[in-house]
């Protein structure tokens, strides 16, 4: 297969505002994954002595959350429930023009080309996305029974891979889906109750401080999420936040 790529290029120089560059990707097998297609283009760029396209990636099996670009306007590309590394070239048309951009959000500054700085997500978790338990002091695992439905829903929420597609697809660059996933997971289990109301306040404060926008129920996040985390969780987050403010 053959494609024309329009790729966002931006150097680490803070004054560089970036631009699209055009590359031809020819002789691409339909079984190639999107990132392998970029590997091939890069290999050819290096052989020509050109600057290869920098992009983040690691596990290439859809679980580490490292990869992600906006492809033809969709975070992680057009295929539902799929990370960029699991997207295959057979789902594109031969000869298609493909636009590739980094996540765009004030809280995710571009580092270079398609790489962005998502450390804001880490700071939100550091602010309260945990249960304060010292190593060595827990009760027996079965001393805390949890109804299966709660445990299953907590798991659905915990499946978040922290890739940032929700932020990249949101017109407000809001991180509400990401935060709500952690709030839901820890709020559903008994172990998470003692810190529940503080947690929601500190995490939301960290989210706002990082420069993420507010949620206006647009729903793009749910559509873009490669783990298909539903946006009802945002309602849970809002309810917990309201309760915590009343309790204060």
């Amino acid at each position: 297969m053959k494609f024309t790529l329009k790729v966002w290029r931006q150097t680490a120089n803070p004054k560089d505002t970036g631009r699209f560059r055009t590359y031809e990707a020819s002789d691409i097998s339909p079984d190639t994954s999107f990132l392998e297609m970029l590997d091939i283009v890069n290999e050819r760029l290096i052989e020509r002595g050109d600057d290869p396209i920098a992009f983040d990636h690691d596990c290439r099996e859809g679980i580490c959350g490292t990869c992600g670009c906006v492809v033809n306007g969709f975070a992680h590309g057009h295929q539902e429930g799929t990370t960029l590394c699991q997207l295959h070239m057979r789902s594109f048309d031969d000869g298609q023009i493909i636009w590739i951009e980094p996540w765009r959000a004030r809280a995710f500054p571009v580092i270079t080309d398609l790489m962005v700085d998502r450390s804001a997500f880490d700071r939100i978790i550091q602010a309260g996305g945990f249960i304060s338990i010292r190593t060595g002091s827990p009760p027996d695992g079965n001393a805390i029974p949890i109804p299966k439905d709660d445990a299953d829903l907590a798991f659905e929420a915990a499946a978040c891979i922290g890739c940032g597609a929700c932020v990249a697809s949101c017109p407000n660059a809001s991180a509400m889906l990401f935060v709500s996933a952690k709030i839901t997971q820890l709020g559903l289990v008994p172990q998470g109750q003692p810190e529940r109301w503080d947690r929601v306040r500190t995490m939301v404060a960290a989210m706002e401080e990082a420069g993420f926008g507010a949620c206006t129920n647009n729903g793009e996040c749910e559509a873009a999420c490669p783990k298909e985390i539903p946006m009802d969780l945002i309602a849970r987050l809002n309810r917990d936040l309201a309760c915590s403010l009343l309790k204060k």
Partner: peptide
């Protein structure tokens, strides 16, 4: 090995559970 499970449960790791709520 048993201590690890206790530790992870206390952290909120959502292990699979039976209908009675046990692991």
């Amino acid at each position: 090995s048993g201590n690890i499970i206790d530790q992870c449960v206390a952290q909120g790791v959502p292990f699979a559970r039976e209908y009675g709520g046990l692991l």
